[in-house]
Design a protein around this nucleic acid. Structure first.
Lengths: 342, 342
DNA sequence: TAGATCAAGCGAACCGGTTCGATAAAACGG
DNA sequence: CCGTTTTATCGAACCGGTTCGCTTGATCTA
């Protein structure tokens, strides 16, 4: 493999001149620049990433810390990864993917050894072990998911409170008075998945304020358990006219359940979920939903991270905590409850 | 961040001695080794990846080239990625993930700049543009998916021929005489997805040899189109008693279709698919299937790649082309056809 | 006790880039 | 026409590791 020294020799100039000719960081005569570029092209010269990183302290690599948790819905994670990867590439960065179950260890290794210029954390929990490590690191970090303490990092997440409110308000306005909210399994919360109760609390508060009933339950995140649970729940709450789903597995299982019960939406039951449009297409879900916008969140995180890395924003510029407003995608599964002929 | 020079100074030895003390590549007195390790620990020393890569010409990073094609089933891809990522980590390697739609360009950049010690290519097509680039590169490569020309690379794939044969033989033995094989969309083949016709040809040949009928069709890979297509196909072939699926989307859509037609397996129809067990669980698919083993293929590719990188196998040792034997996972969707009361 | 062997540590060179300061030649102004 | 500025190039140092060869002093052997 040709080095810049080979290029310089072929062009008959000093190494430094070749470097300047290629980078354009200093003036070089047209004639020399062309000779250098020509030589570089002919030799198939490509700068050595390690050497450049050593010299410039920049790797042009972003670390992506994803954790594949057994009780999270894996396909959903893929969309975040794609959003991050695509945006990073457009910004000229490569991504180093870590799926190590020991997140803090992996993060420390990657940042300490200076393999990356910055880090994106997915799946951030209320109290996330990776955060102390990230704060101690010298590279900036952007999170997807809201932790309890946001100091020193940029944070992006869906507005789950507003999502919960929107769901309830929407159905209340149409005349519904008794709703069922199926959330993720309880141990997702215990592990720190605060978004579950952020949405749930907002839903319950809104219901209380409006004087209607929301039964909030936790559902399994695995098939076929969640299907059986949905059957049991619908049996137990015969007066429920609206179903709110903050649980991907439940959404995926619901079409079959409704079919088995011979129910249709929105005639017999109104349904609204919280998942991505991509997810809805993949599973052919006919339910209106709050868009969880994984690609957009991934993109926002990378954009802000790159801004910090390139210091177009000063190191101690205030960090942002940005919530994506929930967007309701109408797929026609919401209407007035059957008991109220409109 | 502390460098090895800082460690050496703190321990009162030369840089080289500190290096040897930490790597153990030369004898060092116990006393000095402990002093160096102590100093390294106190200073929080971590070697700079770029510098080490420059000095050793080893990055301990594996490139992973995945392409997210619009007509491939994205969740399936995730499992390959996980298999690769987990195995790489266990072998001490990090992974650089590229999802650039321009695979050859991305591959050339990554290998030329020596960011990686080796490369895993996912989703390899019959005539894959990335292969010439890979062969020209100085790092070894392992493929998941069978290209037309396997020279210079290690290849791992499911044995699709055997899969097709197994499907047909299995049903024929039980008494089925007319089967329907739903493959991926035709343009997956046109793009070079040869595994589609590898399975299909084997199925057709086996059927011919045994004197039974297999209707081979291409199905859409998107919802809800594939659901409608399945309805139309079942209408068009009323005498079919067995369904073979080489199309993830079709498998995901089938439970609803069967429900709508009030058919059950295996009573009315025997069904056998080709997908991973993980996929079956995620979608709660009750159909017996040929295990596509994405995690295993990812693991095999990385293992072999690491063996080449670490030259535990010589550079021009013969390359392997290894097919994973299809494993039939019985989920009880196969039985004798209804017309033949046993 | 002289000569050979060996262990332990040091210094220097190298990997392949980038960047700073110096220098020589060319252009400029008075 | 001479001093000053500008322009283009070069050489050297540096980033932070690893590795080779040499030196030194201790141990061993005859």
């Amino acid at each position: 493999m040709a080095t810049i020294g080979d290029v310089a020799r072929a062009a008959g100039v000093a190494r430094s001149t070749a470097s300047y000719a290629l980078s354009g960081r200093r003036a070089v005569s047209n004639e020399v620049r062309e000779r250098v570029q020509q030589a570089a092209h002919e030799l198939g010269y490509a700068p050595n990433a390690g050497a450049r990183a050593l010299a410039t302290s920049q790797t042009m690599v972003i670390g992506l810390l994803a954790q594949f948790l057994p009780d999270e819905f894996a396909p959903a994670m893929l969309q975040y990864i794609q959003g991050v990867a695509n945006t990073a590439r457009d910004a000229g960065y490569d991504i180093l993917l870590s799926s190590d179950p020991d997140g803090p260890k992996a993060l420390k290794r990657i940042t300490d050894s200076r393999m990356v210029d910055g880090v994106v954390l997915l799946n951030v929990a209320e109290y996330d072990d990776r955060l102390p490590v990230l704060r101690a690191a010298s590279q900036p970090g952007a999170l997807v998911g809201l932790p309890g303490d946001c100091t020193g990092v940029d944070v992006f997440d869906l507005d789950f409170e507003e999502s919960g409110r929107t769901m309830v308000e929407h159905l209340h306005t149409l005349g519904h008075r008794e709703l069922l909210l199926v959330s993720q399994p309880e141990h997702v919360i215990e592990r720190g998945g605060a978004y579950v109760w952020r949405l749930q609390n907002a839903a319950l508060e809104t219901a209380a304020a409006r004087g209607i009933t929301v039964h909030a339950v936790y559902g399994s995140s695995a098939q076929p358990e969640i299907g059986r649970e949905l059957h049991a729940l619908l049996d137990a709450h015969p007066n429920v006219t609206g179903l709110l789903l903050n649980n991907e597995a439940a959404a995926a299982a619901l079409p079959t359940v409704l079919h088995e019960r011979n129910l249709s939406t929105p005639g017999d039951l109104s349904v609204i979920g919280r998942y991505s449009d991509e997810f809805a297409r993949t599973f052919s879900l006919p339910f209106s939903s709050i868009e969880s916008a994984p690609d957009r969140l991934g993109r926002m995180a990378v954009r802000q991270l790159v801004r910090r890395i390139e210091e177009r924003v000063s190191v101690d510029a205030p960090h942002v905590v940005r919530f994506v407003a929930p967007d309701l995608v109408d797929r026609g599964s919401i209407a007035a409850p059957p008991s109220l002929p409109n």
